[in-house]
Amino acid sequence: MSELSDLYQEIILDHNKRPRNFREIPSCTCVAEGNNPLCGDEVKVFVQLESEKITDVAFSGHGCAISRASASMMTAKTKGRTREEAREMSQAVRAMLLGPEVEPPRTLGDLVALSGVRKFPARIKCAVLPWHTLEAALDGESAVTTEE
């Protein structure tokens, strides 16, 4: 039960139930769509960039609690950051989920809750998808597919 409660921590369940920034930004500067054809998760990430600073970020789509909470926490954490800082954060999250098991950097804060998926290999891609999509939006790509 403990691995399961690591996966579905209170904070994850909360972000799933009340996702932050769960809306569309119709005329934003960057937008990308991510989908995982294997499980059907779809996420669209909207970013408003103003001179390299993320002034607004939001997401829409449907997915499991893990991908929804990951996307919700991601928007909360990256709003107000620069493009470069958001990229670095995304890479740190991906390293935490996919890389060798090491103490995650303190800068990640709440996002460490996502590391519970490490014990559930089939679910890692759910947590990664929103970040992958954010990076695509920041890089000016419009669509990504994640099966990692």
Partner: peptide
């Protein structure tokens, strides 16, 4: 979501 049901 069904995947959460499946995992649990």
């Amino acid at each position: 979501h069904p995947h959460d049901i499946g995992t649990i």
